[in-house]
Amino acid sequence: MSRGEPLRSGEEALYEAETIDRLAVIALCQRAGLWLEEIAQLLTTEGEPVSDDLLRAKQAEVHARIVVLRALESGLTHALACPSGDVLRCGHLRAEFDAVLPARHKASGSRTGLPTAKPDPPTAVQCLGNLARLRRVRDRIDRDYAHRLDVEALARGAHMSAGHLSREFKTAYGESPYSYLMTRRIERAMMLLRRGDQSVIEVCLAVGWSSLGTFTTRFTELVGMSPGAYRRQARRVSPGIPPCIAKQVSRPVRNREAPAASLLLP
């Protein structure tokens, strides 16, 4: 489209979207583009004296357009932040527009020309979309557990700031990404120590720590005894339980204080 240049990249990004309302979104962008042109025209003077009243009227119209454009920008940001394939993200866009469209536009119906489908409640939609993004972050941490954690990179991949990711992750999974990773590594270390064929330092390196001191501190903090003591005390888990379940039920729980006595979970 030839109008509304600043919105072009937004429109193109949304054109790739696999949503059934793609065309509706493009229509919204085109409408915003038209408004931009009208604003430009409103602000162009032809050298003639302009009365204060006219200026005030133009100012009010410009203000009204800007409010709507801000809503569009906010909706687009939301839409771009949602994972691909989320068909409900256009509900955000429509909801934003419906919320700020001046009453007279709604009443006249002449300016909108927008699809009249009911906007989806943003909170419910955002919740599930966000949770799926967080799930992918958690899966990434699980997959790369032995590597150094890079929250910035994970956050970039999830289209969030690092701080926002940490907060959302903690709300969803009960611990921050870093804490989750540490717990995961300790859990794996417990399994390796139970197996008994590797030394403590070998286990430390195998699960991703380079410092024996840090490993020992974290392990003791979570498990309640040192890795060496745990290894000495270890016995095999009950053979009847599928190993992946045994690993899961013996996972150390971060929010509870580890009892000082031995911690041999079934």
Partner: peptide, 20 residues
């Protein structure tokens, strides 16, 4: 498909992988 875990040897001697 979303990869959760690449084929790896588990401490109990089995190899497995995981997807979503």
């Amino acid at each position: 498909a979303e990869v959760v875990q690449e084929p790896s040897e588990q401490p109990w001697g089995e190899r497995d992988c995981a997807f979503r």
